[in-house]
C-alpha cells in the first residue's frame, strides 16, 4: 500500500508519520509537497500535525486554502482514505471535510501527554483491528483540541456512529476529569458519513514502538492497510 504524507509549510509531524508508516508498519510512503499538482498513485493520504503556515490566525484556517486541498478533496470524493492527525484534523474541519470545529483547550494551555482513548466504532477503515470499547494509550499535543459541534450535528454523529474515539480513563470510563481539553462529549476523533475521512487529535504515529511508551498507534495504521487490502481484492 502506498501512503502519501502532505508537507505544508509548518508541518512538523510529517517525518514522524513517515517513520511510523515506513519503518514500523513496513508500508510504502512518500511526501507530497503542498505545491504538488498531481497526487495520483496513493491509497491513503495523511495530513500530519504541526503548525501549518504558522497557524497564527486560527489552526488550519490558512491551510484549507492551500491548492493541494483541492487535490485531496478530489481524492476523497473518489473514495480514497484520508487521515488528519492533530493539525491535520483541524485543517479537515476548517475545510469542511468533517463536521464541527475546534476551540482552545479548556485550561487555555497547550497540553502534551499520554491519554487513554476508547474505540467507539471498530467498524471503520481506520479501526477494524480494534475491538469495540478497546482502550488505547496514545499521546496528545495541542492547544486547540476542544471539539465542538451543534446539537444537531452531534446527534447525527452519534446516530451514524461517526464518533470514532473518545477520551477516557485507564478503565475506559468517560469523565470530565479525564477529558483533557473540554471536548464536547469527550470526542477525540470523528469520521465523515461515508467513512473514508478520519480526523483525530491524538498522535498514533507517536505510539508505535514500545520504546516510546506504547504500540497502540500501530493498530490504526494496520487497520488502514487491512481495509485497503480488502478494497483492492
Amino acid at each position: 500500500m502506498r501512503f502519501g504524507v502532505i508537507m505544508f509549510p509548518g508541518s512538523n509531524c510529517d517525518y514522524d508519520c513517515w517513520w511510523a508508516i515506513k519503518e514500523v508498519t513496513g508500508e510504502e510512503v512518500d511526501f507530497i509537497w503542498h505545491k504538488e499538482e498531481n497526487i495520483t498513485g496513493f491509497d491513503c493520504i495523511v495530513l500530519p500535525g504541526g503548525f501549518s503556515y504558522g497557524d497564527y490566525l486560527r489552526t488550519g484556517a490558512i491551510a484549507r486554502f492551500s491548492p493541494i486541498m483541492k487535490k485531496v478533496k478530489e481524492f476523497a470524493e473518489r473514495g480514497g482514505l484520508v487521515v488528519g492527525i492533530c493539525n491535520g484534523f483541524q485543517i479537515l474541519l476548517e475545510a469542511g471535510f468533517l463536521p464541527g470545529a475546534m476551540r482552545k483547550n479548556k485550561h487555555l494551555l497547550f497540553i502534551c501527554k499520554y491519554i487513554h482513548l476508547r474505540v467507539e466504532n471498530p467498524h471503520t477503515a481506520f479501526t477494524n483491528l480494534c475491538k469495540k470499547g478497546q482502550i488505547l494509550r496514545i499521546p496528545i499535543a495541542h492547544f486547540e483540541g476542544n471539539y465542538y459541534a451543534t446539537p444537531d450535528t452531534l446527534s447525527t454523529l452519534q446516530k451514524k456512529s461517526q464518533i470514532i474515539f473518545r477520551y477516557c480513563n485507564k478503565e475506559g470510563e468517560i469523565t470530565d476529569e479525564v477529558n483533557p481539553n473540554g471536548s464536547l462529549d469527550a470526542i477525540a476523533g470523528v469520521c465523515n458519513e461515508r467513512g473514508n475521512i478520519l480526523g483525530m487529535m491524538p498522535h498514533p504515529e507517536r505510539s508505535c514502538e514500545s520504546i516510546l511508551g506504547s504500540e497502540d498507534g500501530k493498530l490504526i495504521w494496520k487497520s488502514i492497510v487491512t481495509s485497503l487490502k480488502r478494497i483492492k481484492k
Partner: peptide
C-alpha cells in the same frame, strides 16, 4: 513540574525515549 513540561511538546520527532521528570532526558538516534 508536569504543569511546565506538559505545555511543551516533548514528544515530536518520536525520539524521546525517556519522558521529562527523570534524572536526565534521553533522545534516541534513529
Amino acid at each position: 513540574k508536569s504543569w511546565v513540561f506538559e505545555q511543551y511538546d516533548h514528544m515530536v520527532g518520536t525520539n524521546t525515549i525517556l519522558l521529562p521528570g527523570a534524572d536526565a532526558a534521553v533522545v534516541r538516534m534513529k
